[in-house]
Amino acid sequence: MNLTLKIWRQKGPQEKGKMVDYKVSDISEHMSFLEMMDVLNEQLVNSGEEPVAFDHDCREGICGMCSLHINGEAHGPDRGITTCQLHMRMFKDGETITIEPWRAKAFPVIKDLVVDRTAFERIQQAGGYISVNTSGNTQDANAIPISKHAADEAMDAAACIGCGACVASCKNSSAMLFVGAKVSQFALLPQGQVEAVDRVKNMVAQMDLEGFGNCTNTGACEVECPKEISLENIARMNRELVKASLIKF
């Protein structure tokens, strides 16, 4: 198929960006979206132009590196997948596709479609861990039985890949699905209880500090999340936060 691409080009963090039109032809429907971008970039390199910069790495939907707002949707029109798993069979011959970076104050553009997501790093550093040393002296893994339901639910929350689609999809640029997922994973496990109070307080405080917006229960994040992380995690985080606010050490 033949396509027109409208792509956000921006030379650097301080430069002004703009949408630029490109044409690609003979695109197979079996190609992945990023393979289509490879075709475009090969074309650009061969004609002496600078290729479009975009983040990507594993190309199997797990590293969380790829992003892209495609036709106004994070990770494009399909559900439950990342951009790298999106295939061209989702598009029609002759279509115009708009490709933009994540748009959020806390995710400034570095170049073209690449954004800076280190705000997520700092939120994780504020409390997204259990304090245990790798001494080799931890107790036996089966010493504390954990109900299968709790373990499964913790796993579902832990499936977050940290791509930032939730923030990009939210009209408030809220990161609550991302933070809620991490808080929930540990809140559901006995190992996470000891630091639960500090964790939720510190992570939420850091989230606010980074300039992410608040949650107004629209639910766009859940719809666009490539790992289908449930909104319930936000509710659980809020409960954890209320609980934490009642505890004084």
Binding site: Y129, I130, V132, A141, F186, Q191, G192
Partner: peptide, 10 residues
């Protein structure tokens, strides 16, 4: 043992 202590949901 280590991973379970870290909260890895096996």
């Amino acid at each position: 043992d280590q991973c379970v202590a870290q909260g890895v949901p096996f």
